[in-house]
Amino acid sequence: MGFVVRRSTRRRTIGAGLAAVALAAGAVSCSKGESGESPKMTPAAAVAKAAKNSDDITSLRYRMTGEIPEQGRIKGEAAMRLKPEVAMSMKMTAPDRADGSMEIRFVDKAMYLGGNAEMAKEMDGKSWMKFDLSVLGDEALGGSPGAGQAEQNPAAESTFLTGADDVKKVGTEEVDGVETTHYRGTLTLDALRDSFKDEDKATREKREKSVERYEAMGIDKLTMDMWIDGDDHTKQFRMKGDADKGPLDMTITFLDLNQPVTVEAPPAKDTVDLAEMMQEPGES
């Protein structure tokens, strides 16, 4: 292979993409309806019902905006398929970074990062970097937390607010033209773990992976907001926490759900395989 990629550049690029993908996994569901609350339903019950409704989601499209520890501000829009197998396509920008424009695709258990001019310069003009999540671990990827989270069902994090014991109604608000009821609560990661201890094994494992990702950031407490529509689905979701290396503050707005999502791998001729690249002599 006729090029050498600096390790620092590679880690910085991968870290930005993985952080976005990992936090994008907060996706739940969206639906259009009238104001989202039953007069007889408590805030905790309303949140639990919306979380339960996320079980039926097979695909979704969403917008994300906010701030990630170390990476700064990010904005993105994505489409994700959850069944029969996970696939995702996201376009993301990080305004605080010189190399902050990127496209991310996840298909056939491989992640592709592209659309970044600085990265292409490091790879002799090839515009995509590939790494196989089943082969490359977090250490090989520069220690970026949550590398495997791209395969996680994004509906898992919709259940987090059900673990809070202080859920309250904030008010009614319109989100993207949809009338919603806004709820808020706080919870520690210990309380979050306790909230899913009685779930089935598969559910516990999925939620435990999410908890571990936040632990890796140095977060031990989350403030969470949910905007629930008249069909008892989450229209918008916000997660905030103080991490070791800066604040986490992400908002996910859901655009549609259960619509066809197709994701294709980039052309092989435009792609560099990270596993092969890491074996090249002269890298430092």
Rank of each mutant, 00 (worst) to 15 (best):
S8M: 15
T9D: 15
T13L: 15
T13W: 15
I14N: 15
G15E: 14
G17A: 14
A20E: 03
A24D: 14
V28R: 03
S29T: 11
E34V: 11
S35T: 06
G36R: 01
S38W: 01
P39Q: 04
P43H: 03
A44R: 08
A44G: 00
V47G: 04
A50T: 01
A50R: 04
N53A: 00
I57W: 13
S59N: 10
Y62A: 11
E67N: 13
Q71F: 07
P84L: 00
M88G: 12
K91Q: 11
P95N: 05
V107I: 13
D108Y: 12
M129Y: 12
K130W: 02
K130N: 13
L133F: 03
E139L: 13
E139Q: 13
G142W: 06
G143R: 06
S144D: 08
P145Y: 06
G146D: 03
Q149G: 07
Q152R: 13
A155C: 14
F160M: 11
T162G: 09
V167S: 00
V170N: 10
G171K: 12
Y183I: 05
T188C: 07
D190F: 12
A202S: 12
E205V: 03
K206Y: 05
R207S: 02
G230A: 02
H233W: 05
T234Q: 05
Q236T: 01
F237S: 10
D256W: 12
D256K: 04
L257E: 10
A265L: 05
P267F: 04
T271V: 05
E283R: 09
